[in-house]
Nucleic acid binder design. Structure first.
Lengths: 66, 66
DNA sequence: TATAAGTGTAAAACATGTTTTACATTTTTG
DNA sequence: CAAAAATGTAAAACATGTTTTACACTTATA
């Protein structure tokens, strides 16, 4: 699973910490997701898309190959 | 989180068991998600959307109020 | 109406996502 | 350049998602 959080975050001029606060998770969670340590829950994916003014389908790309 | 899996499944004329096989999870998982026992992982959400010929953003709706 | 196919459900074990606490390194700015 | 802000990271505890096994109930079909 690839994501464009960093790009959208930069476009929206917002830090990992701010994005964390706005989505109600910790900064570590945002950092881990950006660095592909794991994927967010579906709910968090939607919250991230909302705050970053985009959609889940645009924010993430599902690598069909595992 | 609300989902339209049952509706899309019906449109695509496919059983819970078939959808499970196609997405690589168990029938119980599909059943639990349809009945809102829990939300799928982001990857499973994408796989479901693909198989059901729709998008994550159309298949699920994020209830902003927790 | 009998049988098969489809659906609902449950508990235990296991896998993945998130928090907490804490510190190190890098980047930005006065 | 010094200080502040931002980012990377790690381990333990906790929360949520998924499998396995198993059985009961309902709906479709011969």
């Amino acid at each position: 699973m690839k994501n464009y959080i960093k790009d959208f975050r930069s476009t929206n001029k917002i830090s990992q910490a701010e994005l964390a606060t706005l989505t109600g998770v910790t900064r570590q969670t945002i950092n881990a997701i950006e660095n592909n340590k794991y994927d967010p829950s579906l709910k968090l994916a939607f919250d991230l898309a909302n705050i970053l003014h985009t959609s889940v389908d645009e924010l993430f790309v599902n690598n069909v190959e595992e």
